[in-house]
Amino acid sequence: PWSFTDSFQEQDIVVRFKWQRQGIPFGAATSYVHLEKLCEGSCATVYKGISRINRQLVALKVIKLEAEEGVPFTAIREASLLKCLKHANIVLLHDIIQTKKTLTFVFEYMHTDLAQYMGQHPGGLHLCNVMVSSLEDSYPLRHEGYFPLCMVTANYLLVFIYSIYDKNFGENLPLMMKLPLSLQAFFQSAGCIFVEMIQGQPIFAATSGGHEQLEKIWAVLGVPTEDTWPGLSKLPNYNPELVASRRPQRLRVICDRMSRVPAAENLASRMLTAFPRGRISAQDALLHGFFSPLPPQLYQVP
C-alpha cells in the first residue's frame, strides 16, 4: 500500500542507499537503517527507518530493556497480538529484532497519526468512515479468543495503527493511533476517541491518572451503582465512599458538537457505558443508525 512517488525526499533516500539484497536476514539489527526519530514515549522510541531487505520505509519501535525485568510482558503480548492480526486496517508487524539491551518492532511506515490528522482537519473528519474502520478492527480480537489473555491485564496493551479510507479525497489516508486496550476497555477507548473526533477535545481530560481521572469520568457518566452495574460492590478495590454520588449527564450537554451529528450521541453513550456487559458490541455498533449514510460496499473492506 505504501508508495514512494508522493515524496521526492524519500525517493532520494532510496536511491542513495544501494544495497545488495542477498543474505540480508530478518531479525537482525543490521538489516535496518535508522533515519530520524519520530516520537518518544515512556517505554519506547519510534524511528523512521529503511529496510535493507526490500528497501521499503519502516517504523522502528525500539523498546529499552531493563536487565532485571527481561522482556516486558506488555511487549510480549503486543507482539503476539500483532502477529495474529492480519487486517487491512491494522498496521503490519514485519519483523522483530532482539538484542541484549533492546527489543525492536519493525512496522510498516505510516505518514501521519490520528492526532496529527485531526489537527490538520479541524471539524473536517468524515466520522462514519473513521468509526467503521475502528469498529471492524476489533472484530478479529473478539473472534479469535483473545479474551482470556486480555482480561487479566488492566494495562495499556497495544499500539494499533489504522489506515482509513476517506472517500471524499479519493485517496488512501493511512492513520496511526494508540489505543489502551484490554478488551473490556476497548470500546470505551474507541468511544473516547469517537467523542474527541467530533468535539475536537478529549472528553475525560485529566492531568494525572488515578483518582482525578475517575472523577472526570464519573462527572459525565455518573457514579455507577448496583443498579447500573450488577456485581459492582463485589469488585476488588470497591470503595463506596470514594466518590460522592453523581447523576449521569447527557453527552450533548458536555460536548455541544454532539447534537450536530445525527445519532452520534446515542452511539457514543452506548460505547462509553461503564458496566462492561451493558456496553454495545462491535457487531451491533456496526449496524447502528449512525452508519446508515454509508454505502454498503464499505462493509466489504478486506
Binding site: 536487565a67 522482556v71 503476539s80 497480538l81 502477529k83 532482539q98 479469535e144 479468543g145 489473555l149
Partner: peptide
C-alpha cells in the same frame, strides 16, 4: 539474570512470539 534473559530471548524467538492461549486450547 543475564542467563535468564538470554534464555527468554531464545524461547520467544523459537515460539515466534506466539504466546496467545485461546480459551479452547486452555
Amino acid at each position: 539474570v543475564e542467563d535468564m534473559n538470554e534464555m527468554e530471548r531464545h524461547f520467544l524467538e523459537l515460539l515466534q512470539f506466539n504466546i496467545n492461549v485461546p480459551a479452547s486450547v486452555y
